[in-house]
Design a protein around this nucleic acid. Structure first.
Length: 490
RNA sequence: CGGGAUGUGGCGCAGUUGGUUAGCGUGCUGGUCUGGGGGACCAGAGGCCGUGAGUUCGAGUCUCACCAUCCCGACCA
């Protein structure tokens, strides 16, 4: 399977591409820019979905489903929104095929042209707000707290597995509120849920902040984001939560009668994370030996490999292993007992290592004599011989330790790669090294653009309630009241 | 859409100034020995050499066109 693949040092992006394919997470498909998510990769996504879905429901949200297709006219309603998405929309123009005259193939039936073209959703604000209009008359209909799990299509010019694909899977929350305050609170709440998920489940520390106008969601008043730092020093936007103000309510004429019997526009939010999180998880933790998965999201947490020569030895081992599997399963630990005799132990070791399984347990004749097992942890590659007594407890603790270690490692990496910078020369130098740069900015879009043009670094986040201090813009020297995070980004 | 590269068994590649039977590694099938870090040997299966047109006695190899993929830019979660 994956004998030689490049180190991160040699070629980071090749390393990433090979990892995704050789760890069996996904592959590219016959359709340009679209990927097939393979069972092992999809299983990780399902774990993410389950955890997030639970968090959404715990905060009062419900799931629903809206159409894949959006009438073209809906897009015109919100000016910024159209402008933001127009360049990357797939459009359905016909609804029928016919046999071609030469009889050799099939072609679009020009007689079956749609009167109004349909846009394949790049995001669902428009169709949802058109629907909410029907649902909302009174303050008693509010709030509406809905999430949908869906696929969306954005016609990107360059794609990379998980990080940027033409079609991707995500969840999009769309909420409607009586007041501005309530909507902002919702936006912030969801940002915090994303951050909590990233840190507790994915073991990735994230910065929380808002976006500069340049980076803001098309149609939003304010975009909040979580940003993570990858091992190559580039930032990855891992989730966004938007305060939409009354922009969509006005565009789709969604009003409600308040308690004071006044007709008012509804306040809105939307928020989403996508299969891009898969890219984050891969790049944050993995090493030159392959994938490293945080235990909480690993499809297999413990792989058990029997070592034997004769059939009867395997039987003995299996008998020994049975109660271990049972005890682990009881604790909610996902175990795979790999007794395939079509592969050798060494081969299995490599495979589980490459696929990032957090803990490997090997058990052979020597262990049977001593009542032990060999435990290897993926994050540190350490091996240990443990007594079988209370092995389930020991492994449970080990998994927690691995989860924690991955987070701490990622955190100290970020700390080591975050720099306060006060001069333009230094800024240009540090940008080359990668990492986050905390620097002053004069708050204008022009300056941000210039910085981007010269260094490729953009403002990743404007910190929330942090780094308020008098300073001078890194580029223009104009006064600034707060440092912001710059980085090159995915 | 610009610049660069590549299309040859499933995957990764070699194939000389055109020359007849297109190889190698890996994977695959069967077998024997094996088994605590990707095992060894034996025997097999598997190719319209990206597509189309041309040059030639003869094309994987030369010419042209097209298609596809990858990398670098402009666009983006």
């Amino acid at each position: 399977m994956a004998k030689d693949f490049p180190t991160r040092e040699e070629n980071y992006s090749q390393w990433y591409n090979d990892l995704v394919i050789k760890a069996d997470l996904a592959e590219s498909s016959a359709v340009r820019g679209c990927m097939v998510i393979k069972p092992y990769g999809y299983s990780i996504w399902e774990k993410m979905q389950a955890a997030l879905d639970k968090m959404f429901k715990e905060t009062g949200h419900q799931n629903a489903y809206f159409p894949l297709f959006i009438p073209k006219s809906f897009f015109n309603r919100e000016a910024n929104h159209v402008e933001g998405f127009a360049k990357e929309c797939a459009v359905v123009t016909h609804y029928r095929l016919k046999n071609s005259p030469d009889g050799k193939g099939i072609e679009v039936d020009e007689d079956a042209k749609l009167e109004e073209e349909l846009i394949v959703r790049p995001t669902s604000e428009t169709i949802i707000w058109d629907t909410y209009k029907k649902w909302i008359q009174s303050y008693r209909d509010l709030p509406i707290l809905i999430n949908q799990w869906a696929n969306v299509v954005r016609w990107e010019m360059r794609t990379r597995l998980f990080l940027r694909t033409t079609e991707f899977l995500w969840q999009e929350g769309h909420t409607a509120h009586e007041t501005k305050e309530e909507a902002i609170k919702e936006t912030e709440q969801m940002l915090n849920i994303y951050a909590e998920f990233a840190e507790n489940w994915m073991a990735i520390p994230v910065l929380k902040g808002t976006k500069s106008p340049n980076e803001r969601f098309a149609g939003a008043i304010e975009t909040y984001c979580i940003e993570a730092l990858m091992q190559d020093g580039k930032a990855l936007q891992a989730g966004t939560s938007h305060f939409l103000g009354q922009n969509f309510a006005k565009a789709f004429d969604v009003k409600f009668l308040s308690k004071e019997n006044k007709l008012e526009y509804v306040w809105a939010t939307s928020w989403g994370v996508s299969t891009r999180l898969m890219g984050a998880i891969i790049m944050a933790h993995s090493d030159d030996k392959g994938l490293v998965l945080p235990p909480k999201l690993a499809p297999i947490q413990v792989a058990i490999v029997p070592i034997y020569r004769k059939e009867e030895q395997l039987e003995q081992i299996t008998e020994k292993v049975k109660p271990i599997i049972e005890a682990l399963t009881k604790r909610g630990i996902r175990v795979k007992y790999d007794d395939r005799n079509t592969y050798k132990p060494g081969w299995k070791f490599s495979e589980y290592e490459f696929k990032g399984v957090p803990v490997r347990m090997a058990i052979g004749p020597r262990d049977l004599e001593n009542n032990t097992v060999e435990i290897a942890r993926r994050d540190t590659l350490e091996k240990d011989i443990l007594q079988i007594t209370d092995i389930d407890l020991k492994i449970e603790h080990l998994l927690e330790k691995i989860q924690d270690n991955l987070y701490q490692k990622a955190l100290s990496f970020r700390e080591d790669n975050t720099f306060k910078v006060d001069t333009w020369d230094e800024f240009k130098k540090v940008v080359e090294k990668g990492g986050f740069i905390l620097a002053h900015w004069d708050g204008t879009a022009e300056t941000e653009q210039k910085i981007k043009d010269e260094t490729k670094a953009t403002i990743r986040a404007i910190p929330l309630n942090e780094y308020f201090e008098e300073g001078k813009c890194i580029l223009t020297g104009k006064p600034s009241k707060q440092r912001v995070y710059f980085a090159k980004a995915y």
